[in-house]
């Protein structure tokens, strides 16, 4: 009898664990319906994407009365966004860089707009211009930049995988493996933390690069000389579009297959690529190639 009880009890224990697991799994798995578009990806694209979703929601709900649509957004990073789109967990993935060849195998993608990259220093620094050679030397060999009465002895960078870093290094011509990593050459994992490090550098001895949209009074953007005969060019939208200012990166949207998306998701993609959507991107500080080409 005792033995039997033991057998039954251990059986019950296993069953209970199984049941709790099953319960857990049933509890998992959210509802997906036709009135929701899920988006995940780059933190840098958050502002522009939210402006686009807000505008679309307003427009759609005005056209279709009584219909309530939802955007499930998660701004976690380009890698997570592309991964989620590849896994089919979200409708649209966002990457603040071009897709890698590996990623592009399974996904369709579009360039939503461009984002300029500014080289910034503390306003206390007297430097106003930086050349391609200077940037390459400081980022790969740690060579200090001494010009215009300023001495820059350290350069901050973003973490590997960051779209800003990819865009910057690709355009300037710096390889990941050559990066100099001595004292004063720190790595930051967000625009905000890099910017605050530049702000804290009151002696004005460091430089770094951030998205053009994040430049404000607390930092100073430098002119960039790409050494292509155009001389030092100011970091402005117009110069990015004309191609004179070389430092920029694409904001990319990606999805599995356009045809397999829900009607709502298709309509949303069409909206953001339309002139109306692109104007919103411009308002948010991005640079629209579509509008530029149309003109």
């Amino acid at each position: 009898m005792k033995k039997f009880t033991k057998v039954i009890m251990s059986g019950a224990a296993v069953a209970a664990i199984g049941a709790s697991m099953a319960f857990g799994l049933v509890g998992c798995g959210g509802g997906d319906d036709e009135l929701t578009v899920s988006i995940e990806g780059s933190t840098s694209m958050e502002d522009v994407m939210l402006a686009l979703t807000d505008a679309f929601e307003k427009k759609y709900e005005a056209e279709n009365e009584g219909v309530d649509i939802t955007f499930d957004t998660a701004f976690t990073g380009s890698g997570s966004g592309v991964q989620a789109a590849t896994d089919g967990r979200v409708d649209i993935g966002l990457a603040s860089r071009a897709l890698s060849t590996e990623e592009a195998k399974n996904l369709e993608s579009k360039t939503l707009c461009l984002d300029g990259i500014s080289v910034v220093v503390n306003p206390a620094c007297t430097l106003t211009t930086v050349t391609k050679t200077q940037l390459i030397n400081i980022y790969t060999k740690g060579t200090a930049i001494e010009a215009e009465g300023a001495k820059i002895d350290g350069a901050f960078r973003r973490e590997s995988g960051s779209g800003t870093r990819d865009g910057f290094q690709e355009k300037v011509g710096i390889e990941d493996k050559d990066i100099y990593q001595g004292t004063g050459f720190n790595e930051y994992n967000s625009t905000g933390s890099l910017k605050s490090a530049i702000v804290a550098d009151e002696a004005g001895t460091k430089l770094g690069y951030i998205s053009m949209g994040s430049v404000d009074k607390t930092v100073k953007a430098l002119k960039y000389d790409a050494e292509d005969g155009k001389g030092a060019v100011e970091a402005t939208k117009e110069n990015v579009l004309s191609g004179d200012y070389a430092l920029s990166r694409p904001f990319t949207i990606c999805y599995k297959e356009y045809d397999s998306l829900s009607a709502l998701a298709k309509e949303f993609i069409d909206f953001i690529m339309s002139e109306e959507g692109q104007e919103i991107c411009e308002d948010e500080g991005c640079i629209s190639e579509v509008l530029h080409n149309a003109k």
Binding site: T43, G77, S80, V82, S160, G161, G182, T183, N189
Partner: peptide, 26 residues
């Protein structure tokens, strides 16, 4: 090797690079 050299630990590498990592990196 020095008190003021920028460094990466196991944990800081994960949390710093996670959001943009894809493929083998992730």
């Amino acid at each position: 090797s020095s008190f003021f050299l920028p460094l990466k630990s196991l944990t800081s590498a994960i949390i710093s690079e996670w959001s943009y990592a894809g493929g083998l990196h992730r």
